[in-house]
Amino acid sequence: MENLPKKMSSDITISCNALAKILLHTAKYPHLAVSGVLLSTSKKNDTSETFILDAIPLFHGQLGLAPMLEVALTQIERVFKSEGLTIAGYYQANELLKDNMPDFVAMKIAEKIAENNNEACLIMVDNRKVSLNLDTVPFIVSQLTADGKWKNKEKTGVHLESGSLEITSQLLQKKVHRDISDFDNHLDDITCDWTNKQIGKLVGSLISAAGF
């Protein structure tokens, strides 16, 4: 891995697909902490911004154990490498409503991801800003600085695919969160699809129906 002093804060854009999956996952388990990873298109040059294309919901409840996380990361890498996607970050929503600080588990996993992708970001869901009518991105996004600290990104450096808030609100109102599967669900019942292709398709059709 290169350890060149990197320029911080290239802009990040979050797709509707990723926003929707993270919030649906959070809404499915309102009484538990949830976590997952972010996928982005592999970069061709480092001037372009990071585009978070997709999110893979991993766990709910207990987030601090290593074995299934290792299994999940290996599988994700294998499935998505051929599609030109790489793991570009980690998201977590804490159990307590008011708690939006990353705990040691979040930091440790995000740091591991950052070892392979130095633009990796850590998204903490700001539970209090999640609602059925989203008016703002309920995320606190941070990136690792050159001196190894996680620094919150300015709101101006985080963009959303247009229409994302409206579409995600619609999905939450329609209780689509009951249909999202995470890796934990898959381990309990292997017919649960942790890539959530159905929801991806649904988001795609809503985007085109709304004409964004």
Partner: peptide
């Protein structure tokens, strides 16, 4: 083996789910 066992079942399930989804949710969204 476990995955193979479920595969035939889940392909059927996938199809069912797809037709269900395209029926209810996209209709509502329009």
């Amino acid at each position: 083996q476990r995955y193979e066992e479920e595969k035939s079942k889940s392909i059927k399930m996938d199809k069912l789910q797809e037709s269900l989804n395209s029926l209810c949710i996209t209709d509502k969204s329009c």
